[in-house]
Write a protein that binds this DNA or RNA. Sequence first.
DNA 1: GCGACAG
DNA 2: ATCTTGTCGC
Length: 270
Amino acid sequence: MEKPPESEEPSQSQDSSRDYETWITAQDILREKLISEDCFAWKLPTTGASQAQEEEALRYVGGVDISFSKDDPSKACGTLVVLDFHTLQLVYQDFSLVTLQVPYVPGFLAFREAPVLLQLLEKMKRSDNPFYPQLLMVDGNGILHPRGFGLACHIGVEANLPTIGIGKNLHHVDGLTHSRVRKLLGAEETSSKDFIDLMGCSGRIWGVAMRSTQGSIKPIFISIGHRISLPTAIMIVQMTCKYRVPEPIRQADIRSRDYIRKLEMNTKVN
DNA sequence: GCGACAG
DNA sequence: ATCTTGTCGC
């Protein structure tokens, strides 16, 4: 007697699954270009005491983030900041207001957020800006992702930049759960290490969970994006952490929020 | 079968 | 992501 309500709109789920497969294919193709080792011309200023090298030192570290309007959730502000690696002072910032049509779907964050952020990078590069980042930190995961290709990888490959993924929450992949991480992290509590490998059920290392500040209970999740190794990524994150979240991400986050908040302030007056 | 799931 | 105040502590 009763008909399943699904029979009313069968095309809806069909279309959705087709979109996802298109996205999966795109991720699979881009992933072939992924480089998981150190591949850059610069070197860390603190590495060794070498002076008269031909190589340049790492100086400009970028950070990207997106904030959203509380009024209209589709209105977003993409933000790119660049900090001096040594002083952690801001040397560049730019914002881009957009209306996002693509929804947020776990595992496909890049298709929603990457376009705006890539555009900000492209604008900087086109104008030969001297502060163009040598390394980019991304608010979102790198290979810590269902198909090993999160937002940080996506941006890294498309912009051909070394990138590091910074997650503030754990994306459950390969059996990695909140309780499992808590267990691993707790085991290291007495140890001197402030981070632990995120080893999934398969044995693969997806990144690390790190308590970036002493006394912080909630860890951040670091995974490589592109053209960088995990040990190097960890080192750089540690060197840029004044607070829980590394400074380039934190500045992008703060300034992005600030920008959209002030904008809504003016829009109310008119 | 149900729930979990970066921002 | 966003909705939200105070509050405990260095």
